[in-house]
Computed example of a mutant assay.
Amino acid sequence: MIEQIISPVTHDLGQFEVRRALPSPGRTMVGPFIFVDQFGPAQLDVGTGMDVRPHPHINLATVTWLFEGAIDHRDSLGSFSTIRPGQVNLMTAGSGIVHSERSPADERNAGPKLYGMQTWLALPDGREEIDPAFEAVTNLPVVEDQCARAIVIMGELWGKRAATTTYADTIYAEIVLAPSGSLPIDANADERALMLVGGEASVDGEPLDLYELTVLTPGQAMTLASGRGARVMLLGGEAFSTRRYAWWNFVSSSRDRIEQAKEDWTEGRFPKVPGDEEEWIPIPERPNTVSAP
């Protein structure tokens, strides 16, 4: 029923916490997901905000999903998007992209709220170096009854498919259960995991611990249920047969490609972010994100 439970590493960023479940020493990926961060809920001080300066990515796609708050996204393609709840931002790095994420001015004036998910998808073999791209999708399918509501963010679940681009078979959904609510978890994906991000829930009677990534046994249909109400993320998809490495903001099947990206960023070979060109994040000596050797 439950294959593995991963306790996230918590990073305290002052006014809010980020909990990183993947990559972890015991597991690098669940389906194409190679990086899973959960942040908030948090209420920041008036006049402050989140400021993630421009930084690079290669060979992956980032997926940003918010429960509360807003984030301004800018990237080196010239894309600009204000992410809000109900909208998924998919940024495909491919051969290389640079982006920044900052709290909008109106959020700063009111005291920003931050509560959501940041995940990365490894790109499959033969597609790691595709052209960079960006999309923001709002017309996402909803599955609901009186006690359960699920938004299909990526892939196909409960007979409905999201319009969001997928490069490998991917499932991703936000599930909100009212008290006494339940929802079936299909067995179709190679790999699946649940993360309880609010409230109380169980899968086939086994309680989920808050913010832990619970990897489900493949091939078994299960039921997610809550007695008092819950918010749960479901993620997973196609199992990769080729290993992926992660170092800082870079993911690749090739260690040499990551070394090249590190050199390219240090030497200023990545493109700039229009409208956010003055700042950047330098290469760290010891990054927080590193896959196991």
Rank of each mutant, 00 (worst) to 15 (best):
G237H: 08
T64P: 04
L235N: 08
F134P: 02
R27D: 12
E212R: 13
Q220G: 02
P25V: 12
D12T: 04
G47S: 05
T10C: 10
A178M: 14
G31D: 09
H73P: 03
E68F: 01
D276Q: 07
N59C: 12
A110M: 11
T166K: 07
F134G: 03
P207K: 11
D106E: 13
M29S: 10
P287H: 08
G78N: 03
A105Y: 09
P179S: 09
G94H: 08
G205R: 06
S291W: 05
L224N: 01
L90G: 04
M91T: 14
G69V: 02
I71D: 05
G227D: 15
V9S: 07
S24I: 13
L157T: 05
A163H: 05
R228D: 14
R192H: 06
N188M: 10
E17G: 07
V215E: 08
V142R: 08
H55C: 06
R257G: 00
A230P: 01
V98A: 13
A42G: 04
V143A: 07
M1R: 12
W248S: 05
T138F: 00
Q87A: 12
F39E: 02
A21I: 07
L157W: 04
P218I: 09
G236M: 04
A168S: 15
T138H: 02
Q220W: 01
F240V: 05
A173Y: 03
G94N: 10
S24D: 14
P41R: 12
R127H: 14
I283G: 04
L121E: 12
P54F: 00
E206R: 10
T62G: 04
A150K: 01
R102Q: 15
V36K: 00
P124E: 11
E238W: 08
A150T: 08
G205D: 10
A239H: 14
G159M: 05
M233V: 15
E238Q: 15
D131H: 14
V273S: 09
D209L: 08
R149F: 12
R161C: 06
I2N: 04
E206I: 09
E107M: 13
A201G: 06
D131S: 15
G69L: 02
P8C: 13
Q4A: 06
T214Q: 02
V52D: 11
K113V: 00
H11W: 05
T119E: 05
Y211E: 07
P104S: 09
P179H: 10
P282D: 14
D264G: 07
E3A: 13
A246T: 12
G94S: 06
A189G: 07
A122L: 07
A70Y: 01
R228W: 00
V63A: 03
G111K: 12
A168I: 08
H99T: 01
F67Q: 13
E267Y: 00
P207R: 12
L66H: 01
P85A: 00
M222D: 05
F134Y: 14
P8S: 13
E238H: 07
P179R: 09
H73Y: 02
P32E: 11
S180K: 13
Q146V: 01
Q38P: 05
